[in-house]
Design a protein around this nucleic acid. Sequence first.
DNA 1: TTGATTTTGTTCAAGGCTGAACAATATAGT
DNA 2: ACTATATTGTTCAGCCTTGAACAAAATCAA
Lengths: 152, 152
Amino acid sequence: MPWDMPRFRNWIAVAKVHVLVEKAMAAGLAPLQLKLPHYDILANVYRFSGLTQQELADRMLVGRSNLSMLLPELERRGLVKRVPDSEDRRVRRLSLTAEGRMLTLRALKVQVQVIENMMAALSAAECEALGDYMRRVGHHMLANPLSADSAV
Amino acid sequence: MPWDMPRFRNWIAVAKVHVLVEKAMAAGLAPLQLKLPHYDILANVYRFSGLTQQELADRMLVGRSNLSMLLPELERRGLVKRVPDSEDRRVRRLSLTAEGRMLTLRALKVQVQVIENMMAALSAAECEALGDYMRRVGHHMLANPLSADSAV
DNA sequence: TTGATTTTGTTCAAGGCTGAACAATATAGT
DNA sequence: ACTATATTGTTCAGCCTTGAACAAAATCAA
């Protein structure tokens, strides 16, 4: 059976850690009145100020309709600004307000803490190897998507 | 900034791969008229036939209310059976129908394919190391949850 | 210049997920 | 035997995510 196969089990281990990290993040962000998707937006906009909604959706690997639902809430809370582009009237460019930046820094501390707690189980070399493997896997998957007719 | 820190970036790489795998899985399961959560249920019930809804929720790391929403749909499709326990009248035990088992085997092939495609970027030793790291990290996180007052 | 195509963001409906509240049932303690 | 507490599964409201459809705007091709 698949779950007897090493590769399968190794991936299940990865998936389980991912769930644990998301739960830890959710718990850590709750005092800041932030949900994970909101934080994801804030962190990306902090880091790439001025990006468009489509660019943000690409980075977060979500649909742009999702952002059309989430962004107005962050805007209403005074954390994000959406400004029409000077050249392309379809486009809105995103940036954080001063309050948004402050909140993002606090939330980043939460994320760093969760990640540090997690990685405490690994040596520096192991952690680095993990990152190497995952980056390589990510590139491989983007370069070699499974075709739709090859599954079943 | 956090994204300049190796550990942070290494985790981001893991998170990104997780998203890519979920998207590949979703695409691969679509022809079977299955969503990821449904497949997750089927695979777990296939493997641990007779488990309770609470046990399934624990394994899947989701709330039992979620399963109360999802299971009736799988039952309605004739894939899952929910049988009252012989001793504890609160409990329902889950098993797959013959059709449910067949569909699960087909879906497992999809998952194996996605995982094989993914792991093709790694040597066998690297893949094994990845699993070791993640299992260790998982145990560490379960043993050392962040306290609620330590984040902010 | 014009028409076709693509891109961007919004709206919509559907569905998955959470956590609280609840009822029924089991277990624990006195 | 009785009361208190815990457990199991369901319902509910709220919210995140998807994909389709749409309008406005930009780009492309002839």
